[in-house]
Every structure is written in C-alpha cells, then in structure tokens.
C-alpha cells in the first residue's frame, strides 16, 4: 500500500501543507530571483542548505546564465493627453538613450497589419495590440515584436501583455532579437493601455509617447542547477528525474512560476524519505536555473548528461502551476504509456487518474526530443496567465491543500516508476 501511504502522509498526515510552508518561507525570505541576480544566488544557497538539512544527498552543478538588468524605466503618453503607463521592459531589451525616446505611435493588431502599414512605422514607436488567443500563439508578439518593428524602421516597440485578464498589470518575459536586425528598446504595456491607444488611433488621433529604459545586458553570470537525490538500491545509475525551476522574473515573488514546481519536486523526495522508502532506481530532483531565458541551465545539464541518456527512465517537470491537479501529461512509447496508465490508477484516492497526452516543459524538452519518456503536471490552470510574469505572482495565489495534492501525485508517480522492475520502454 505504498501509494496510499504516500498520499496519506502528503494530504492528511504530518507532511500536509509542508510544501506550501516551505514555499512561503523560501519566497518571503528571498523574494524574486531573476537570472544573474544576487537573489538567485541566495535562493540556490538556501535550497542547498534546506535540502541537505532535510537529509537528502544534494550537490550543485555549475552553469553560465544570462545577466540582464532592468534598470529604471517609465513611459508617459504626452499626446493626446498626459498619462503614465505601467510598463515592464522585456528580458534582453536594450535601453533607451538617457534622455529617452519621444516619438509618435503606430498601433497595430498583428504582424500582418504592421507589414501592410510598414511605410507608416518609420521613426515611430510601434504598439502591438494583438488579442490574446492562447499563450503559445500570442507570445510570438512578445518574443519577436521588437525585431519585426525594427525591420520597418520603428525606434521602439510596446507590446500588449500576454494575458487573458488584466487589472492594469504589465507582464514581462524574454524576447529575442533577430540577427542582423537593429536592436530597439521593447517593453510590455498593460492590456488597458494598449486598448486605449488603439481606440485613439481608430479615431484618427495622434499619439505621442516618451519611453525611458535603463536596461542593459552584462556578461553571463555563474550559477548552478541544484540537484537532490535518493539513490536507488538496485540500479543507482538509472534515474527518474523530477523538476521545477528556481529562477523567476524580477517582479512578484515567483511563487507560482515556478517556486511551486520546485517545492513539490523537493517534497516528493521528502515524502519518500520520511516513509523510509528507497526505490530500485535513483530519484533525482533537479531545480533548474535560467529557465526564463529559454531553459539555459537545463540545456547545459542535458549537454553534460546526455552521454548517460540510456539511464534516464523518466523526466518530469512542473512549470504550469501547482493548483488543483487534474492529471498527468505523458509523452512516450505505446508500451510506456500502458505502464503509466497503470501507475496513475494508484492516484484514485485523490481523483487524478487521468493520463493525458503531450508531456511538456522547457527544461525537459531536450530529453523528450531525444526519446526519453516525459511527464508534466496538468493542474487547474485557467488563472495561471493572469499572474504569470507579473507583480501578482505571489504566495497569495497558492493554496496549501492544492499543493498537498500536487506533491502526492508527483511523489507516487516518481516513486513507483523508479521502483518498477523494468525501465519504461523507449
């Protein structure tokens, strides 16, 4: 009755609410943890110490990560009336000259419209007021808006935040300059301000904005992936990897993205250790660094460890929130899926027996692309992007009972797969 023991301990027993308390202690103490920051260094030291004190076998693996700093930033509309905008510069953006950029605005709703009106964009600040369709489809405006605007002669770009809901909250994120295209300053603005400027533009009113951004990119910083293990008793070289990322954006607390994922990965090992269990294979929690810049720490981990790929049984990642779990997303062979369908049946006491398709996660994707079975946590995420990369990503969106359920699911799946006689078939 191992699965029941794990669930009981996590949800009703002495460990209930522990992952929530750990997350609160961690985020309240450290705060947010952007790549390259002192806070991220502190976060890694904190977790190294905490997991060691928890009795786990912990080590750090050095990696290099981007170091972008936001600096002071502001934006004001000057014409047709004075109004301050809430903005957040986008990761990797260049800054403006110290005196800022003051220019007329061109508002568009799509890249297609921008190309059609290319001649109007020269010397202007391009505002993208693209509607939110889904994160995956809409985030291309954040990622490539600056380069697309620069191609048609714009001097800066302002991107409507990638969120389906807003209370005048800007949402930051990484953006990518294209090679050979001039690098112009770029920031996100709120849905409200994007729509405001869109309405002015529809009325034919001239809009002028002054943008100041002190952003700069420093040399890559030293950082670490944080690795905690329970060594397998029979095949210690074979691994079930479970993970979340420790870095966050430099706003809010990074409690949801992805403090929760990191904490349930730690908690899964704690639960198994507390019950005196030890699986056949090694259980390895990896708390990634530099995820927000495109899975930078995870890519270096993959490069270093891919030589042992045949020993990776299953890779798991939680990076879409730790709200009420709905099921497990899984990518693997038909034979592996059959096994996983049996494994999730063990989660009947917490009503999460659904095995879905498409395991996903930036940090485990290199392994999955190479054919290693991958799993991710599917939670009730309808509000996830309300808070994502914004000041709203704090402990207030987390719930202890929901985290108990996520921890139980994570621990049962990881333990059972690690303890089966055979590895999952590729």
């Amino acid at each position: 009755d191992v699965a029941k023991q794990i669930i009981d301990l996590a949800v009703f027993g002495a460990a209930q609410n522990r992952s929530y308390r750990r997350l609160a202690d961690f985020t309240d103490t450290i705060g947010n943890r952007v790549s390259g920051s002192h806070n991220l260094e502190m976060a890694i030291k904190y977790m190294y110490t905490a997991m060691t004190q928890d009795g786990l076998d912990v080590h750090l693996e050095p990696v290099k990560i981007p170091h972008w700093v936001r600096g002071e930033e502001s934006a004001q509309m000057i014409v047709p009336r004075a109004k301050s905008f809430a903005i957040l510069g986008l990761g990797s953006s260049v800054g403006t000259p110290p005196e800022g950029i003051e220019a007329e605005v061109l508002v568009v709703e799509s890249f297609l419209e921008l190309r059609r009106r290319a001649s109007e964009a020269v010397g202007k600040i391009v505002v993208f007021n693209q509607p939110f369709v889904s994160y995956g489809l809409t985030v291309v405006y954040r990622a490539y808006g600056a380069s697309e605007a620069a191609k048609v002669g714009a001097v800066a770009s302002l991107i409507r935040s990638i969120t389906p809901f807003s209370i005048n909250s800007p949402h930051t994120g990484w953006q990518d300059y294209q090679d050979g295209v001039k690098r112009i300053p770029t920031a996100c603005i709120t849905v409200e301000d994007a729509e405001l400027m869109w309405r002015f533009a529809q009325r034919g009113q001239k809009i002028v904005v002054r943008l100041m951004m002190g952003a700069k990119t420093l040399p890559d910083a030293d950082s670490f992936n944080t690795v905690a293990e329970i060594k397998g008793w029979q095949h210690p070289e074979q691994v079930v990897l479970l993970s979340g990322h420790l870095d966050s954006w430099d706003v809010g607390q990074g409690a949801m993205d992805d403090g929760g994922g990191a904490m349930i990965s730690w908690e899964a090992l704690s639960l198994i250790k507390d019950l005196g269990l030890r699986p056949r294979r090694t259980l390895r929690a990896v708390l990634w660094t530099g995820e927000e810049q495109g899975g930078v720490g995870a890519q270096q981990y993959y490069n270093l460890h891919k030589v042992n790929m045949s020993n990776f049984d299953l890779v798991m990642e939680s990076d879409l929130g730790t709200f009420t779990p709905l099921g497990l997303q899984f990518t693997g062979s038909d034979a592996a899926r059959k096994v996983m369908e049996e494994v999730v049946k063990l989660l009947a006491p917490i009503n999460t027996t659904k095995l879905e398709t498409h395991g996903e996660g930036t940090d485990i994707s290199p392994w999955m692309q190479a054919g290693v079975p991958g799993a991710s946590l599917h939670v009730a995420d309808s509000r996830y992007f309300w808070f994502h990369h914004s000041e709203g990503d704090t402990m207030t969106v987390q719930d202890p009972q929901e985290m108990n359920l996520c921890s139980a699911l994570w621990a049962v799946v990881a333990y059972v797969v690690a303890d089966l006689q055979d590895m999952l078939q590729r």
Partner: peptide
C-alpha cells in the same frame, strides 16, 4: 528473432505482468 506473433504475445504477457506489479503499490 522471434516470429511476429510470438513477440506480440510476449508484449501482452509483459504488459499484464507490469499491470499486476503496479497494482502492488495501490
């Protein structure tokens, strides 16, 4: 190499064995 149907029988046998093994953790 095993004939196709033998492999299929073997896979089915293995699947049912794994199902029984996993059920042991209930």
């Amino acid at each position: 190499a095993l004939p196709k149907n033998s492999r299929s029988n073997d896979t089915e046998r293995k699947a049912s064995h794994v199902a029984a093994e996993v059920a042991g953790y209930t």
